[in-house]
Design a binder for these strands. Structure first.
Length: 289
DNA sequence: GGTAACGTGACG
DNA sequence: CGTCACGTTACC
């Protein structure tokens, strides 16, 4: 279908970037044999730097520095890759599609994170707390915050500093200027407060409605202690390459575990006592301390 | 039905 | 604590 095609196209551009600077320290990247599954996850041997075993946190830290440098080239590379692969479309249009693909993903993750809050809140509480949370967000600095540097192979334009990526947080251009939803858009259940269907299309736009809807419904049905989902925002989540060397990769058949370098930071933590949602910065927000 | 991946318990 | 194995869920 055309919808998925567009999305794939967007992801493809990103994956190409990811594959290029796949991870830190890949100095003269030797020709890596790319094997991709249908989700676009690349199975690639661990590079040399990774073979010197480092703690994951260390790995991510060093990756951030390298990624910061690499980010400067990311956009250029994305464009050149599009040209070299024979994409006839206007480069800006192609870039836009690529961004849309990512944005969809991020919005879905965001909404999923927001709605996954396992415990209930009164509407007024939820509204007020969400409003406060949005005011805490440092969204004004789009050049740089920590996040863009941590995104492996994610171009600066893809970073999450842009308010436009998060309509929940932008109220007509004002940062933290108010809670953007009509109260009638909420559904209150014993399990918590959720956005109504119409609210989703209001927030995400009609074209994204279908995609997010399935996520929301699953999130709602999973109000209890079902599987948590990857946040989709943290560097490991954004990584699209299986190292094929860690224990999880080696034992994939029996272990059923995601590559250690792709394991979501949030899923590594113990499930919080309940009152925690994911902020767009990737950081968890606790309703109550 | 196949695959990916989360949750959990056992083990060293 | 890290690893492994299994059950289970979610998605295609």
């Amino acid at each position: 279908m055309s919808g998925s095609g567009g999305l794939m196209e967007g992801n493809q551009a990103r994956e190409d970037e990811d594959a290029r600077d796949s991870c830190c320290g890949e100095e003269d990247s030797s020709p890596v044999v790319e094997r991709r599954n249908r989700s676009g996850i690349i199975s690639a041997p661990l590079n040399k730097s990774l073979k010197h075993s480092r703690a994951l946190s260390q790995y991510i830290a060093t990756c951030s520095a390298a990624a910061a440098v690499a980010n400067a080239n990311a956009n250029r590379l994305a464009q050149s890759s599009l040209v070299s692969t024979g994409v006839k479309a206007h480069s800006t249009a192609a870039q836009h599609r690529a961004q849309v693909g990512l944005t969809k993903l991020d919005r879905g993750a965001l909404l999923s994170g927001l709605l996954d809050s396992p415990s209930g809140l009164h509407l007024a509480q939820a509204a007020e707390l969400l409003r406060q949370a949005s005011m805490l967000l440092p969204v004004s600095d789009s050049t740089g915050l920590n996040m863009s540097g941590d995104m492996e192979g994610v171009s600066a334009s893809d970073s999450l500093g842009s308010v436009t990526d998060f309509p929940l947080l932008s109220n007509g251009g004002g940062v933290g200027g108010g809670f953007p939803f009509h109260p009638g858009l909420f559904i209150m259940t014993p399990a918590g407060v959720f956005l109504a269907d119409g609210a989703l299309s209001q927030v995400t736009g009609a074209t994204e409605h279908q995609q997010t809807h399935s996520e929301i419904t699953s999130a709602i049905s999973a109000n209890g202690k079902k599987k948590r989902k990857r946040c989709g925002l943290c560097p490991p989540c954004r990584r699209r390459i299986n190292c094929e060397q860690c224990s999880s990769c080696r034992n994939r058949k029996t272990g059923h575990q995601i590559c250690k370098f792709r394991k979501c930071e949030e899923l590594k933590k113990k499930p919080a006592g309940g009152l925690e949602v994911m902020l767009p910065t990737g950081a968890p927000f606790r309703w109550f301390q």
